[in-house]
Amino acid sequence: MVKRIDGRKFDELRKMEAKVGVIPNAAGSAMFKIGKTTAIAAVYGPRDFQAYLQNPEVGVLRCNYNMISFSSGGERVRPGPSRRSREISLVTEKALLPAVDLSAFPNAVVDVYVELINTDAGTRCAGISAAAMALADAGIPMRDLVSAVSAGKFKGDFIADLNYEEDSAEEGVDFPIAMMPRTGAITLMQMDGIVEKDDIKEFMKIGKKACEKVYEVQKKALREKYGK
């Protein structure tokens, strides 16, 4: 049987690890590790927010994604503030927003900081998965958790959870998705590469299945902190 570069099956995810409550100062925090990619998310708030962005009807979710300067070799992506990190901050916010209910906190803000301490593809997905757990840890009312993972295509095969080699290959397609596992609603869908129309359906299928595996890890981590 043909396998992938790192010996995984096509729909197999990298080894996952999650821990809730890693930053004592924060209201809620979590670490999510998938393969060599490690994301740490911290949530602060709801807190006072006297800025032009405040909304008197509902609380504001503010996300910040950042790759720490030593997190990668910098061959493809240079860590630090950039157009890319602004974009991912925005999509992280949009991916989490349908799951959180901030109606009880008008005019206030909930800050989510996602830091990647080691990166090897799939950072935005790891960040979103960590942030969802951190929000739950902070006690922010949520309609569901959010699980994220990338689907993709590499040398004609449909695969889940791309690693760096697959992601950066010229013919590779990266298709990160985030899902609310209970309803199956998709909150993030991006694409990088050239695909056929029918490929999308395949990506969705493989991605949704993979998200459920991520969800199991998230559930277990949350129960581990709060369960007996």
């Binding site: 799951a99 739950a136 949520m142 309609r143 569901d144 958790l145 209970r182 559930k219 369960g227 007996k228």
Partner: peptide, 8 residues
């Protein structure tokens, strides 16, 4: 029982 957000 300990429950998490989104659990039915």
């Amino acid at each position: 029982e300990v429950v998490i957000p989104g659990q039915i």
